[in-house]
Simulated scan of single mutants.
Amino acid sequence: MPEAARDDVELLRAAGLRVTAPRVAVLEVLAEAPHADADFVATAARARLGALSTQAVYDVLGALTRAGLLRRFEPAGSAARYERRTGDNHHHVVCRSCGAVDDVDCATGSAPCLSPSDTHGFDVDEAEVTWWGLCARCRPQRSQTAAAASACGIPVPHDSKEGH
């Protein structure tokens, strides 16, 4: 058994979870593809295991999230994403064009990063921040398209997601 798989087995046991092939496969997939959605995880886990139902993948993602082994986040307008990086108060930046996601460490270091104007009686322990923009891969494509359209006198529409 590879070292990473042994580590995942120990991680599951330490969390008080039964070690199953689907749980190990999901952890392996997310180690290789952080910020993946459930469909991606299901496809990649099936490639490792063979038959695996979509419901089983959702059950595994839920169990691992509840156990604190995964973090679930949901960028506006996107499917929920999952990652293994947990408990360290980081945020995300999302590309409006291709949907790429990267981690952004919290500038203040301690949770929550923001202070609400009114907590309405809640004991706030986390703030989720998502920055939106164009990734380095998409930015040149967007600039070239806009420049070509502008040179031809064609108005360039704004991306419907911009400004949100």
Score class of each variant (00 low, 15 high):
149 A>E: 07
130 T>K: 00
30 L>S: 12
59 D>P: 02
122 F>I: 00
157 P>N: 05
64 L>Q: 01
25 A>Y: 14
73 F>K: 01
75 P>W: 07
65 T>M: 00
95 C>H: 11
19 V>T: 15
123 D>K: 02
1 M>Q: 14
65 T>L: 00
99 G>N: 07
146 A>Y: 00
41 V>I: 10
84 R>D: 12
64 L>A: 02
67 A>C: 03
148 A>H: 02
89 N>F: 09
77 G>A: 06
153 G>K: 01
113 C>M: 06
93 V>D: 13
117 S>W: 09
38 A>I: 06
152 C>R: 04
118 D>W: 03
134 L>R: 04
96 R>Y: 12
136 A>N: 03
129 V>H: 03
49 L>Y: 07
127 A>E: 06
58 Y>P: 02
32 E>Q: 15
3 E>N: 13
104 V>N: 03
136 A>Y: 00
141 Q>P: 00
91 H>T: 10
105 D>C: 06
26 V>W: 11
101 V>H: 03
164 H>E: 12
117 S>V: 08
121 G>Y: 04
59 D>K: 05
41 V>G: 01
35 H>D: 06
73 F>C: 01
134 L>F: 06
78 S>E: 14
27 L>K: 01
158 H>K: 09
113 C>V: 03
137 R>T: 09
14 A>H: 13
100 A>M: 10
123 D>A: 07
30 L>H: 09
58 Y>G: 04
129 V>L: 07
109 G>F: 06
115 S>D: 09
46 R>W: 03
87 G>M: 07
39 D>S: 13
87 G>Y: 11
46 R>K: 04
53 S>W: 09
143 S>W: 01
41 V>K: 01
24 V>R: 10
158 H>N: 05
131 W>K: 00
121 G>R: 04
97 S>C: 10
31 A>W: 12
